[in-house]
Design a protein around this nucleic acid. Sequence first.
DNA 1: GTCTATAATTTGATAGAC
DNA 2: GTCTATCAAATTATAGAC
Lengths: 177, 177
Amino acid sequence: MSDMADKILDAAEDRIRAFGFHGFSFRDLASDVGIKSASVHYHFPSKADLGVRVARRYTERFLASLPDPAGTPHNECFDRYRLAFRSAIVDGGRMCMCGMLGAEIDGLPEEVRAEVRTFVDRNIDYLERCLGDRDRAWQMFALLEGAMIAARGSGRPEAFDLATQHLATALTAAAGA
Amino acid sequence: MSDMADKILDAAEDRIRAFGFHGFSFRDLASDVGIKSASVHYHFPSKADLGVRVARRYTERFLASLPDPAGTPHNECFDRYRLAFRSAIVDGGRMCMCGMLGAEIDGLPEEVRAEVRTFVDRNIDYLERCLGDRDRAWQMFALLEGAMIAARGSGRPEAFDLATQHLATALTAAAGA
DNA sequence: GTCTATAATTTGATAGAC
DNA sequence: GTCTATCAAATTATAGAC
């Protein structure tokens, strides 16, 4: 993977998280990284290819950034997970990329859809190991994705905390009990 | 408001909820309702106009479909709210329109963004009257929007129930107490 | 109100020179 | 790897006939 390919993926990730998959063009990305759109196609032949690659990198990076539930107290484990979402929306104003792509799922190339499903499945598996319960994993995943929507839709980043703070505390307490 | 304008708004609402604001064209809508794209522009001069009108109609209709919290037990009131979201995703596979637009907020015309904020604010007000607590209103709003994302992203409509069933029960019980 | 026609721009994508 | 040049199709939008 070349430096330039990585820079293009960075730009694509940022634009997907801000505008959605149909909210940017190869020319936008080219301008972001300082080359021409034909050169972007050299690295990623089609937009579907690009979507698959950026979604896959996002999933791997995100999961790799999380603590191992086997070696971390469950309370801390879930709180770290919540803070990863929080900093994206509060510090950068960005959606979770796979939350955005999940909303737009019907309009995505099938290969990209498959990557989104993988992200969700692996996050649910992770949260189940954190929280000890699969239903609770779905609840927390939904709560965090929705808190991002609430923050963006209302124009109030603090909505993320209003939505997640108390519940997250209560649920990790329940999980620890 | 003419019949045709309403049919166009129906088509626009369905396409926004499936594909997002940038996921369809005036020609798509024209084809949906059986006219030409130039005629769509007769009813809605620009895509921003269309976005404002469809978002405003969605907000009014959605709130009008809900029971009055003053004359309805709070448990039942919130459950009806939850079921409105549930049937959209489980029966039709569609996002809440303002959840979709909230995710895409950075790419929307400013007039449309304002309508999304209004939707969120009025829904939070409604939920506060249902649940008796403003934080809990944000929590439930986030949970329901996120449960739609989880269902779409995973390709599993039942994820909506896994995410919302137990928590919703617990929280309306707490609200009733 | 709807049509045909069309303008102006943008988009995803390719060919071929360097 | 990046460029210029270009393409075919699509997009938002307008003008003017019916």
